[in-house]
Design a protein around this nucleic acid. Structure first.
Lengths: 332, 332
DNA sequence: CTGAAAGCGCTAACAA
DNA sequence: TTGTTAGCGCTTTCAG
C-alpha cells in the first residue's frame, strides 16, 4: 500500500474540514455546491484516492466478495467454471465489488475476516467452508447447487428437467439405446443429470443399462475414453447424451474418427450451449443453461443481501433450461 | 463483515493486555510461554478471528495480491489463462496471500488502494493499468510479456525460441509448406510466435507466404475456420503450426473430417503441452511451456518484492520451452 | 449546511 | 517480558 495523500490535505487545500471532504466522497447531498466543487478540484489536483482499507474499517463493512470454486481439473477447466468466473468477474466489477478468488478442495479453508459476502460455485467440494461462512453470518449465495435442509440463498438450474428435455427428445426421435457420459460426480449438477437420465428412461419404460453409463469429469479426454468404450459394446448406443458440450464435441470427434457419422449413425446431444456448438463439423444439439445470467444474478443477489441489514429469508431461484435443436440428432 | 469478538475480549479472558494478544497473533517470540498458551486458549474459546482490515490499516500493508488477466474470450477461455489462474490461485494460497481477480479490458481500471502487489498475466490489453500500478509504487510482476524500456519484474518464456523449436523441427522433417494459425494477436505471445515462425522460415530460405498465415484467437472455432481456409488452397500446407494445443487439436479434427490423415497427409504441431495432447486420436507433438511453474515463480517473486522494503532492481526470468515429440508430425 | 471529537480494531513505539 | 499510549485514514454522531 503506497502512502498517499490523505483526506486532511484535501481539506486544507479546499479550505474545509475533513468531514466535508468525506461527505463529498460519499456523495452526501447536504454539501453546499460551492464547497463541493472546491473539494472536487482539490481531489483532482492532489490526485487523491481514498484509502479503501480505512474506509472499510470505519464503515464496518467490506465490499470484497469471494468466489469459491473447486480446483479439480475437470471442473475448473470446464466451460461452466470459466463462464462462472468470467461472469462473476464482470458482474462484480459492475457493482463495484472486489472479487477474491478462492480455489477450494477438500481441505481448503476460507478466511471470512476480509470479505463481505461469498459466492459458492458449487459446494460439495468442501462443506466445511459453507458451514464456516454460515456461522460467521456473512451473506452468501450458492450457484448451481440446491443444498438440502439449509436455509440459504441459491440460484440454480433444474438439472433434472434440463436432462429430461435432452433425453426425452432422443426418445421421441426413436432412440432406445441412449448412452450417458456423466460429468464429474463430485458436482451436484453431474449427479442430477445422471439421475435425470435414469428417470427419463424409466418413465419411458426403457431399461437403464449400466454399460451405457460412462463416468466422465467434464473434460475431453474423459469423454474420449468413454466413447471408446461405448463403441466397443456388442450393441453400441444409437445416441449419446453428454453432460457437457465439450464432452459432446469430443464424442463427435471420436465417432467420426471411427468412420461413423453424426447424426446418421449416432446422435449426440450435449449440455451448456457452449459457442463451440456452432462451429463444429455438425451443429450440436444441446441443453442451454444460462450461466452468465446465473453468475450475474447471483452476484447481484449477494450484493443486495450485503446491503440489507436485516437477515431476511433466503431467496431461491431456479433458472430455466432450454433445448436447442441443431443437427447432431436424427430420427431413427 | 460480521461483528466479531475483538482482541480486547481475548485479552480480558486471558488476563493480559491487548498488545500481548497481538503479539501472540503475530508470533512475536518474546511472549512468555504461559501467557502465550493462555491467549491461545482464549482465542479458541472465543473463536476469535483478527479483523484483517484493521490489521492492514495498522500495519500499513496488504497481503492481497491482484491477478490482472484479459477478459477477451479467446484468451480468457484458453488453456493458458486457465493454468495461470489456477497456478496463481494455488501458489497464493500457499503463501497465505489473498487473490483478487481483475478481468481487464481496454477501459478497465485497477484500484490500487486495496492491494499489496499485482500480477499481470499479460499487459497489452491495458497499458494504463500497468502505469497506474507502477506509479503507485506497488510491486508487480508481469507474466509472459517482456515490456520494452521498462524496469519491471517479469517472468516469461521465449516465444520466439519455442516457436523456432517447432518450425525448425518441421523443416528438418522436410516440410517447406508450413502454415501457421496464430493466437490472439492482442497478446505478445501470439505476436512473438508469429514473428518466430516467419524468421525461422526465412533463416531456412523458405518464403513466407501470407496465405499460409491464418489469424486465430486461441479458440477452437477460430482454428476450425483457419484450417478450412488452408485446406481450400491450391497447394495446401503439408504441416500446420498452431499457437495453442487446443487449436492444434481442432485442426486435427478438421483434417480428419476431410478424409485426410495426421500425420500421413498433414503434420500438426501445437504449443502449450496441454494434457489433451496425450488423449487425442494421435499424440500431439508440441512445445511445452511451463505455465504452472511460471505462475508459481511469479507469485513467489511478487511475494518477495512485497516483503523487501527496499525497491531493489527488477528481476527478469526467462523459462525454457521444450519440444515434445509425439506422433502428429512425420518426415516427408 | 458544517466541524469537532470520538471511534472502527489493530499494531508499534516507548516505557516500565 | 509486558502494558500504556498513540495512531493507521476514514466515517459518524452530535452540536453548532
Amino acid at each position: 500500500m503506497a502512502e498517499n495523500t490523505r483526506i486532511e490535505e484535501v481539506a486544507n487545500l479546499a479550505g474545509v474540514s475533513p468531514t466535508t471532504v468525506s461527505r463529498v466522497i460519499n456523495k452526501v447531498p447536504t454539501v453546499k455546491e460551492a464547497n463541493c466543487i472546491k473539494v472536487q478540484e482539490a481531489i483532482r489536483k492532489l490526485k487523491f484516492k481514498p484509502n479503501v482499507i480505512a474506509q472499510r474499517l470505519a464503515k464496518g463493512r467490506s465490499d470484497i466478495i469471494a468466489l469459491v470454486i473447486p480446483r479439480y481439473e475437470g471442473i475448473f477447466f470446464s466451460f461452466y467454471a470459466n463462464q462462472i468466473i468470467r461472469g462473476v468477474g464482470v458482474a462484480s466489477e459492475n457493482l463495484k465489488l472486489d472479487l477474491l478468488l478462492h480455489l477450494s478442495n477438500d481441505k481448503s479453508f476460507i478466511n471470512t475476516a476480509l470479505i463481505g459476502g461469498v459466492l459458492f460455485a458449487d459446494v460439495l467440494s468442501n462443506k466445511q467452508e459453507l458451514s464456516n461462512v454460515l456461522e460467521s453470518g456473512i451473506p452468501c449465495v450458492i450457484m448451481n447447487h440446491k443444498p438440502v435442509n439449509l436455509d440459504v440463498n441459491y440460484i440454480a438450474i433444474d438439472n433434472r428437467v434440463g436432462t429430461r428435455q435432452a433425453v426425452e427428445y432422443l426418445i421421441h426421435l426413436g432412440h432406445r439405446n441412449i448412452a450417458h457420459i456423466t460429468g464429474h460426480l463430485i458436482s451436484q449438477a453431474a449427479i442430477d443429470r445422471l439421475e435425470g437420465y435414469k428417470s427419463a428412461l424409466q418413465e419411458n419404460k426403457i431399461n437403464v443399462k449400466e454399460e451405457l453409463i460412462e463416468k466422465g469429469d467434464y473434460s475431453r479426454p474423459s469423454a474420449r475414453k468413454a466413447v471408446l468404450s461405448l463403441l466397443k459394446l456388442k450393441t453400441p448406443p444409437t445416441a449419446v447424451f453428454a453432460a457437457s458440450d465439450d464432452m459432446a464435441q469430443e464424442a463427435i470427434s471420436v465417432i467420426l474418427e471411427h468412420g461413423l457419422r453424426v447424426p446418421n449413425d449416432i446422435s449426440v446431444i450435449g449440455f451448456d450451449d457452449n459457442p463451440i456448438c456452432l462451429y463444429g463439423s455438425v451443429g450440436l444439439t444441446t441443453v442451454r443453461q444460462p450461466l452468465i445470467e446465473m453468475a450475474a444474478k447471483a452476484t447481484s443477489l449477494l450484493h443486495k443481501a450485503m446491503l440489507s441489514k436485516t437477515t431476511k429469508s433466503s431467496t431461491k431461484i431456479v433458472l430455466p433450461t432450454e433445448l436447442v435443436i441443431r443437427d447432431s440428432c436424427r430420427q431413427i
